[in-house]
């Protein structure tokens, strides 16, 4: 970088540096400090109050032999894979359709984006009613005459996660669509014209020309969606509170309940450290490829 050759001037832009001190302090103390603190205390047997009484990897041993935690991880994987694939596919399709210079585009965009204005708690409550067998879809279809119709995902341990994915997609796809649409609008009109002159069909243009050009948009979207997946908590609480049984438990809920209900901070910290590790495993290789690779190339 050029700054290496220039003489260091620590007092240059002093006011800007002073102004950013609060942000730096927050980042270092709260985020980094808090993270380190949590990791350190996850090796202790802290109960209701944090204590520095180290017990090695006991909390992790227990964590990975707890069926509820294993179910939580499995559920997060199901939710993550499904919502990642579907929100990308549906979001991109909707964006591509809206990009065809249709009439009332603003209206459609508003309709698709509207669910995003609702919190997960509200979304969860709404979908809990829609999927409730006594009030929702099942009841309506049955009252239309199809008596044997069964659609009861939230009370079936094998289906409950799919019910939650459905609500999550309804809430989040609109945002993905908007991000993709913004990306599509950034594609130069001349590229379309060139493709048309060469006689390439539209779908091929999308697949081989436009999508590769949208890579930065996809990466941003990926990060947003992934962050939403890992912190999944409120949707589950509002829809099923982890039930039936513990069929829809998720890691964030495990962390909360062991920290506050079970009064076992150590166990909660161990679980949250595992969550951090998961995020790190995803983020670090990606960041390496994204930023490290470019400098070399």
């Amino acid at each position: 970088m050029a700054s290496d050759t220039r003489p260091r001037r620590p007092f240059r832009n002093l006011s800007a540096k002073i102004a950013s001190i609060p942000m730096i302090v927050t980042a270092v103390c709260v985020f980094l400090g808090g993270t380190l603190w949590t990791v350190v205390y996850s090796f202790t047997n802290s109960k209701l109050l944090p204590r520095l009484n180290f017990v090695g990897l006991d909390q992790y041993d227990r964590l990975w032999s707890t069926p509820r935690w294993l179910v939580s991880i499995e559920n997060l994987a199901i939710y993550g894979v499904l919502s990642l694939i579907f929100s990308f596919v549906i979001g991109f399709l909707l964006a591509a359709l809206l990009d065809q210079k249709i009439r009332f585009e603003n209206t459609f965009r508003t309709i698709f984006l509207y669910p995003f204005a609702l919190s997960f708690i509200v979304t969860g409550l709404v979908w809990q009613w829609i999927l409730n067998p006594d009030f929702g879809v099942q009841n309506i279809v049955r009252s239309l005459g199809w008596e044997s119709f069964t659609f009861n995902p939230l009370y079936d341990a094998n289906l409950v996660m799919y019910g939650i994915v459905l609500a999550g997609l309804w809430q989040g796809t609109g945002l993905i669509m908007c991000l993709m649409l913004a990306g599509l609008r950034g594609i130069d009109e001349d590229i379309w014209k060139a493709a048309r002159v060469d006689g390439i069909p539209t779908w091929k243009t999308y697949l081989y020309v436009v999508i590769p050009m949208l890579r930065p948009v996809f990466v941003t979207t990926l990060v947003i969606v992934m962050a939403g997946i890992v912190k999944l908590y409120d949707l589950v609480v509002a829809m099923t509170s982890g039930g039936p049984g513990n069929a829809s438990e998720v890691p964030a809920k495990y962390v909360y309940e062991f920290m506050f209900r079970a009064q076992n901070l150590g166990q909660g910290f161990a679980a949250s450290t595992m969550m951090l590790l998961t995020v790190a495993i995803i983020i670090i290789p990606w960041a390496y490829l994204e930023f490290g690779g470019r400098r070399r190339g």
């Binding site: 707890t66 509820r68 209900r261 079970a262 009064q263 076992n264 166990q267």
Partner: peptide, 9 residues
Amino acid sequence: PDTTTQLND
């Protein structure tokens, strides 16, 4: 409370 939570689960 820790054991109670595990038992409830």
